[in-house]
Amino acid sequence: MMKSFTITKRQEEHITILEINGELDAHTAFKLEQQFKNLIEIEAYHIIVNCSNLQYIASAGLGVFMAYIEDIRNLGGDIKLSDMTGDVYHVFDLLGFPSLYDIHKNESEALSSYKNQK
């Protein structure tokens, strides 16, 4: 059975939380890309991507984070990541993401880090 990739969007004050669910690969990455484009359009630059239900990520998924982080930081925002499972973190780690991205244990820690920046 085809597993899908879905995104649920929530708002916490000025911070947008994207819960990403399922498998993020070369076939599904466009959905996350579209979401980042939409957020830039509506000037929602403070983003947390909650990965608690992300079961799988391939480099095409990581490529979406790479393509948008610079623009969003230049606009005064960030893409913070939280709640990664061990398998998913391993892939981010292999590519050196932890030194360049703000990765948090959980969503509330990521939220606090935004609030402390204010």
Binding site: S59, G63, V64, A67, I69, E70
Partner: peptide, 10 residues
């Protein structure tokens, strides 16, 4: 990241 490139990671 600076060049907004993706891919090449596979």
């Amino acid at each position: 990241i600076k060049n907004k490139e993706r891919g090449g990671m596979g």
